[in-house]
């Protein structure tokens, strides 16, 4: 049963101390909307429910109606609010800027409406965006759908990645909002995750230190800078019928090396999410990407990004451990020892 709530009018929107989380979110969102649309009246927020997904933040689904100077409005919305404990320390401002910049491009993404960057209204940094129709399935490429449908979706995902990498980030002002990498993209990304590793580790991890040392010694030079999604996977997309209706979760987007995204999806430890055995494997993915972008992908460089993808995944899991121990995160993760062997194997082969 979904929680549904009609908040009181703005004059009395502050809920009592016994308000449910949904009632509190509704009241807070109503205050944000009143701030963003001063002429808004008769704001009604209905069918508010926290979605089960979302490992790094709270995702709330709701239907909103209001009337303002422009007339009557009716929208299906998603509210993304930073959770108190999270796997990814991300910025809502980054997501808002990227979604604004993507409007009018051929990248399917939700229209973004409002942002509460400091949590002034919602208690934690938040963005409100269109709720695009479609469903999310982490394992859609290995689901019960017929093979031809799964292959079409797999090709759709790599076409979507190429479209993201084609976005004219200079023309759309993303240099200003995302910033250019201070050093080479590989070293910048590595430094970011190294800092996160040092912040969250609760015990020595000589395995991750050894791999970090290798990554530092072997960091590649980048040939081109593009918009990078940063967490490209089927689990961050909506699918309606046989088409990808939206790419979601842009809070990790940045300007960097396009091979970072390709390294994420060809990462061997996540084959079940990104590959279809015997039909859509590393070779097919790389060939399709090269054909779509005209770029030549160096196997050595891609392997470096594969190792970084695993190392980054390990740090994300250590972040979850850190947040769980601190009492801020509600899922139990373990030290990611399962990633060590594949990383060593890739380092040997590189």
């Amino acid at each position: 049963m979904n929680r549904s709530v009609d908040p009181p009018s703005p004059a009395t929107c502050a809920p009592s101390g016994s308000a449910t989380p949904a009632e509190q979110v509704a009241a807070d969102l109503q205050r944000l909307m009143t701030h963003e649309i001063p002429s808004a009246r008769d704001i009604r927020l209905q069918s508010l429910v926290r979605a089960a997904g979302g490992l790094s933040r709270e995702n709330w689904s709701l239907d909103a109606t209001w009337t303002d100077a422009a007339g009557a409005h009716k929208h299906q919305l998603m509210l993304m609010r930073d959770a108190s404990g999270t796997l990814l320390n991300t910025e809502r401002g980054r997501e808002y800027a990227v979604l604004k910049a993507l409007e009018g491009t051929d990248v399917p993404a939700p229209r973004v409406y409002w942002m509460d960057p400091q949590g002034q209204f919602l208690g934690a940094p938040s963005v409100v965006m269109e709720r695009v129709s479609g469903s999310c399935d982490y394992m859609v490429l290995n689901s019960s759908r017929p093979l031809d449908e799964r292959l079409a979706l797999a090709r759709g995902f790599i076409e979507l990645m190429a479209a993201i990498h084609r976005v004219d980030w200079r023309a759309r002002g993303l240099e200003r909002s995302l910033g250019l990498p201070q050093h080479s993209p590989a070293r910048t990304e590595l430094a970011h995750w190294q800092a996160e590793y040092q912040r969250v580790r609760l015990e020595p991890h000589p395995e991750l230190d050894l791999i970090l040392s290798w990554l530092q010694q072997q960091a590649p030079v980048t040939e081109t800078i593009t918009l990078v999604h940063g967490d490209f996977k089927p689990g961050n997309a909506l699918i309606e019928g046989q088409r990808i209706s939206a790419k979601l979760d842009w809070e990790t987007a940045h300007l960097g090396d396009p091979l970072e995204d390709l390294g994420w999806v060809t990462n061997p430890v996540r084959k079940r999410e990104h590959q279809i055995p015997g039909h859509w494997e590393r070779r097919q993915i790389v060939d399709a990407y090269q054909a779509l972008t005209g770029r030549t992908v160096s196997e050595r460089v891609l392997s470096w990004w594969n190792v970084l993808a695993c190392w980054k995944l390990a740090v994300i899991q250590l972040t979850a451990v850190h947040e769980f121990v601190a009492g801020r995160y509600n899922r139990v993760f373990q030290t990611p020892t399962w990633l060590y062997r594949p990383m060593f194997q890739m380092m040997e082969a590189a």
Binding site: C136, M139, V332
Partner: peptide, 25 residues
Amino acid sequence: KIKRHMIERASRMPMRYVPTAPTTS
């Protein structure tokens, strides 16, 4: 030797993450 030790250790680790990722959101 270091890598062998690390891989052996990882294979003997008694506590492991149990994935229960949601399939819909």
